[in-house]
Every structure is written in structure tokens, then in C-alpha cells.
Design a protein around this nucleic acid. Structure first.
Lengths: 339, 339
DNA sequence: ACTGGCACTCGGCCCCGTTGAGTGCCAGAT
DNA sequence: ATCTGGCACTCAACGGGGCCGAGTGCCAGT
């Protein structure tokens, strides 16, 4: 029994099932995909595939549907990422061109992804961990109250209010400002803490409390704000999945409301820019049975900013979805590199 | 036929239907609510109520359910806003106390509302139109590039990059900064444009291009950023509404993804702080048949910052929901006033 | 190693009778 | 006048029975 044909049968099953959403039987398979064998032969192959755990039958007398394992094999060995048409590419490009700031870029991206893939889209904001400091500004709001503004190379701006134990004067502030900038500009956020920790020592003792307040707020904000943000869109697409899926809609919606969960879905530590597909049980959440997650990193050639991707039922069009996700990621990376 | 009893019957129907989600019949009504009359009498009242359009029967031989008009009457004349228990109030208070910045406050509020009402929650960010300028800061990033930061009394911070046709020096910038602040601080955002428009005239001709660039960016940003933002949460609650509602889940989810639509839901121009209830067709969207929107303004005693509210099926617990929405709004207003 | 044939299983569908909640109406009671 | 009890009627929901057909596994034959 040819091993190749068995794979062909699996591929056919996945493709048909994804297209029709119905268990696919040997007869239909033999007709629609012109593999030159009879239904009976296919049945034997199917029996073998089932034995190995790649497909299953919902009821005794029904067709087969792929298991998570079956999809996995399909994605790994049978599916080529389908590139997008020129028209699609152009549409993506022009839609993203119009963005005016970071929020807008991310917002557009998430809408775009949702629309193109017709799935739920998730986009991480460019990671602060990897971004560098472009400028740090200090403003005096009141004698004992300053404002700290950090601008990153990815266009993100974070601000904090610093309450000072003692009054600060403008001269001190200016001095501090320039020293902080000298120490921090160009550094990755994570490294800034080390660079500024010894700054207070360079000031007179009387000034140290104020300096310390500012520096510690800076360090604290960098650590704290490193927490990643995530944008979400296309949840309406969840309802497209007929009557079988809705039982799962609830937990999925719940999961999607938790930032932390979204972060985990996007692949946690796996900070490569590789296109990854997590199928059903491979996901870190138990409540996501029946759903797959397709993600990829985006950024410039040199560094990955963050990840984006989609979430949908395991029975999705993997080649097309993967192509769309990858294409969108590329354009977003390009746009961000320009700005 | 006593008009009062007819109202009592309507109230009973609404209450029972909201509780059970099933059409309510005359017999059950007579039993559960001890109005001292027989089912037959109630039937007569029901017939009258139906005649007037307050209730309807889904099938010939089924109980009655309230119409949108029926709910309207219920809300207007029969329902008292139910105040929350001490425990609930305390929970709200402590949950909101922990917030660290504006985003956090809004985020917590939306989660809180969703949880307390078990509906979809919507919270407008404090309106920039009504807020005032607390401080304007100018930083020189490069000789022809400045950064403009506007801090409002509601804690919101907006920043813009200003590209200058000619180099600016620090002295000019300092002068401009102080003049802008003198003119703008304390003003409502909408009024700032008028206050600063003549500023360029007070500078030397050579400096005007630079000043103009900054001022026009300021004005532009104030106009543009007046666009309201909205936070959304609790969409998972949409799935609670059994099998009849899900047909409507799709359009609702779609609607909720549009910021503009959300803004309209929250009541557009109706910038009072009054608790308002829009029932079914009263909503500005056709796709929201079967859903009601309960909103209220929040802010300080003097001014309303924005609105917040929830969205759920017309068959909701109005007294409880209204109470919860109002209570949350009060606490949010208080928190914002403090900070 | 593949194919055609065959018996078998079982979910989906349609038809149909039963059930029971709920209604409207009317004649009688208060 | 107003309410009540009784009564006939309607109709959605439920469940059982029978049919159909897609799909399977197995086996004997090419």
C-alpha cells in the first residue's frame, strides 16, 4: 500500500472537509479528487489513517473528519503557504498606507487581518522590550510634581507623574534631563535601568532625593509598561461557525477578553518571526479545543517587533490563512520600518 | 375595568418573562403574583394590553411577551431603579480604587460593568471636548523638530510631532511655551483654538513661521483628538442568551466593532448625565432589534465627562441594570474627580 | 495490490398522533 | 358593571415509527 497515496487521501479529506464542513466519505472522495483508485481502496487507506490517529468518524456510519493530528500532518507536510493575489496585496498595501500613528497602524492591521482571513484577528503592539529609547523628557508641573515622558523608536509614548519628596528647580531638572538622555537614548528599554541606576551618585547629596524619585519612576515605568498590549478584532467572525461551534464561542470570547491569555496565544517566549500554527489541543488553553491559532512575527529584517495572527476553528483553510497572515505581517513590518 | 390592575398585570408579565425567558400565561400569572383575581379576568386585561400594543403572543396558543412598547411603559412608569447592596457598592469601590491611570480606570470600569450587569459594557473615555488644558509642553527633538504634549484635566495626554520649516532655538521655544500656557491653561479644548490663534502676531516676523507651525499643529491636534474613544467589554455575555438570540449576535458583534456605532449608541448629542434607556427599535441601529441600551453620564457634580452603559437583550432586568449602571457611573466620577 | 459486491449500521427526515398550555368567548354569579 | 367558571378550540412541542441513503467493513475475485 503506497504511503504516498495515503497522504494524498488525507490531503483530500482535509480539503474537502474544510470546504464543506461535512464528514467526507470514500465515494465522494474518489469522485471529486481524481486519484485513480476505487472507493474501496480508499476505504482501506482510510482505515489505516484512522488507525494511526489522523482521522476519525463522528458516528459509526458517517464519513471521516481530520483529527488535530491529521491537520498537523497536513500543515507540516502537505500544505504550501498560498501566496496572495496581486489585487489582495495591493489592497493590503493601500489600506495600511493611510495610517497616521501607531495606534492607527495596529487598529488597521487588526481590521485588515480579520477581514482578509474572515477569522478573529490578534495583533501585539510592537514590543517595548525590544524597542529603544528615542528621547526622555521631564516637565515641571508643580514644585514637587514632574512629568516624565518616554518616547520609543517604535513611536510609542509613555508618560508618568513623579511626586517628589522635596521641591525641584528648573536647573536641576534640566541637568537631570540631559544626563538621563545621555545615558538612555539608544538603549533598549530593558537596559536603561542599568544605565541610569548610578545617576543619583553624580548629584549633590541635597539633590539626591529628587533625582532618586525621578529615576526610580523611570525604571519602574519601563518595567511596568513593558507589559505588552494586544489589539483584537473580527470577533463577529466567530458566529460564522454554524451550530456546532457556538458551544465553544463562549469560552473563546471569554479567553479573548484576557490580555494575558491573548499574549500566551501569540506565542509567549517564541520570539522568532517564524510562521507557526497551533492546532487544537496544542494550544496552551483547554478552553480552545477545536480552535487553531496561526501567528507570525513582524518587524524589520533586523529585528522582530512583535507577533500577530488569527484564531479560528481547526477546520480552516490553512494555506490561504497562512498566506494572508504572512503577507499582512510583511506589510506591517514595512510600514513600521518607514515611520 | 381598573386601569391600575392592567398596569400591575403588565408589570407582572415583564417581571416573569425577564425571569423565565418564556411567554407567560394567565394561569401562571394569577398564581405567582397574588393579584386577587382569577385567570379569566387577567385574560381580559391581557387582551386589552395586547390591543394597545404593550404585549404580544408569539404563537396563537402561547403566553404573552412584552413588546418594546410594553418595556417602555414598564421602565417609565412601573420600574424603580434598584439600588445596590452595600456589599456590591463596596466591591465596586475597592475595584476602582486600585486604578493607576486613565486607561486603567476605563479598563477596570468596563470589566466591572460587564461583570456586575452580566451584559456587554461600553465606556466612553472622558470627552476631550469638555475637558480643559492642564499643561502644554514643548520639547526640541531636533533643530526643526519639536514635540508638543498636551495634558488635560481628565488625565489624558496627547502628543504630536511638529515639523518646522525653519530651525527653532530654545529661547524661542521657551517663550512660546510660556505664552501658550498662559493662553491655554484652564481653557476647554474647544476654546483653545480661539485663544491661541493670535499668538503668532506677538512674535517677530522672522519667528512667525516656526510659531505658526507649532500653533497650527496644536489647534489641529485638539480638533482631531477630540474624536472620542470607547472601551468595550463583556462580549462573552452575548452568548448567554440561549438559542433565539444568536441570530442577532452576529450583527451586534459587528456593530460593536465600529467605534462610530458605539458612540451613537452611547447617546450622541444627548450630553446630559441622565440615565436613559433605549429599547429595541428606539435604538439608532436597525441591526439592534431585540437589544436595549442603558446609559448614563459620569463626571463631577459640575460637569459630565462622558457616558457609559451596557447593552443587552430587551428582556433584561431593568431595575437592577439601571441601578448598577448608575452606581458604577457615580464611583467612576468620584475617582476621576479625585485624580 | 486493487476492485466490485454485499450485508450492515445508523443518523436524518418525514409523518402523525398525543399532550398540554393557553386562549377567547359566553353565560351566570356578585 | 365586573368578575368568574366552564368550555371548545388552537397549536407548538414531543415522541415513536418507518424509510432512506450515505458510509462502512469484509471478502472473494481479478
Amino acid at each position: 500500500m503506497s504511503d504516498e497515496r495515503r497522504l494524498a487521501v488525507l490531503r483530500a479529506i482535509v480539503e474537502d472537509y474544510v470546504a464543506t464542513q461535512e464528514p467526507v466519505g470514500s465515494k465522494a472522495l474518489a469522485e471529486r479528487h481524481h486519484l485513480g483508485v476505487s472507493p474501496a481502496t480508499i476505504r482501506n487507506d482510510m482505515a489505516a489513517l484512522e488507525e494511526e490517529g489522523f482521522i476519525a468518524q463522528p458516528h459509526t456510519s458517517a464519513g471521516r473528519i481530520p483529527t488535530d493530528q491529521g491537520y498537523r500532518l497536513f500543515v507540516d507536510r502537505l500544505a504550501a503557504v498560498r501566496p496572495l493575489s496581486m489585487a489582495e496585496k495591493r489592497a493590503i498595501s493601500t489600506f495600511l498606507e493611510g495610517a497616521v500613528d501607531l495606534d492607527d497602524i495596529v487598529g488597521r492591521t487588526v481590521r485588515l487581518l480579520a477581514q482578509v482571513t474572515r477569522q478573529v484577528a490578534v495583533v501585539q503592539y510592537p514590543s517595548l522590550t525590544r524597542s529603544t529609547v528615542r528621547h526622555v523628557e521631564l516637565l515641571l508641573l508643580a514644585p514637587t510634581r514632574a512629568m516624565l515622558v518616554v518616547i520609543t523608536n517604535t513611536g510609542r509614548v509613555e508618560q508618568r507623574i513623579v511626586e517628589c519628596p522635596v521641591p525641584i528647580d528648573e536647573d536641576l531638572l534640566a541637568d537631570l534631563r540631559s544626563k538621563i538622555n545621555t545615558a538612555a537614548v539608544g538603549q533598549k528599554l530593558a537596559e536603561v535601568a542599568d544605565s541610569v541606576v548610578e545617576l543619583p551618585d553624580t548629584f549633590e547629596v541635597a539633590q539626591r532625593p529628587a533625582v532618586l524619585a525621578v529615576v526610580s519612576t523611570l525604571v519602574e515605568s519601563l518595567v511596568e509598561e513593558t507589559e505588552e498590549r494586544v489589539a483584537l478584532g473580527g470577533t463577529a467572525n466567530l458566529t460564522r461557525f454554524g451550530q456546532d461551534f457556538p458551544l465553544t464561542v463562549q469560552p473563546v470570547l471569554e479567553a479573548l477578553e484576557e490580555q494575558v491569555v491573548l499574549m500566551r496565544l501569540l506565542g509567549e517566549a517564541s520570539m522568532t518571526d517564524a510562521l507557526t500554527v497551533r492546532i487544537g489541543h496544542e494550544n496552551p488553553l483547554e478552553s480552545l479545543i477545536g480552535t487553531s491559532v496561526v501567528t507570525v512575527g513582524y518587524g524589520t529584517a533586523e529585528e522582530t517587533f512583535a507577533r500577530l495572527g488569527i484564531l479560528g476553528p481547526t477546520r480552516m483553510d490553512y494555506p490561504g490563512t497562512m498566506g494572508a497572515v504572512r503577507a499582512v505581517a510583511r506589510y506591517v513590518g514595512r510600514i513600521l520600518a518607514e515611520s
